[in-house]
Amino acid sequence: MNLLNVENGKWVQVVNFRGGSGMHRRLSQLGFLPGNRVRIVRAAPFRGPLLLEVEGREIVLGRGIASHILVENI
């Protein structure tokens, strides 16, 4: 499943990323690495971005990218 399928507040674990190497690099430096825990803190209305907590930081991600991050339950 991808990040968009996860309910708010629930911790999940990053598995992989579907996409080019440029985005791999970008996400890896923000803490989205396999095995790392992530949760959706809140979602902006009107199909806006997600506010995620990962590695002690809060990161805002658009839904497009979030849908490419594959996660699994812990």
């Binding site: 996400l27 805002v60 991600l61 990218i65």
Partner: peptide, 8 residues
């Protein structure tokens, strides 16, 4: 474009 990526 890929969309928003920003640290809060």
């Amino acid at each position: 474009s890929p969309g928003l990526i920003l640290e809060m």
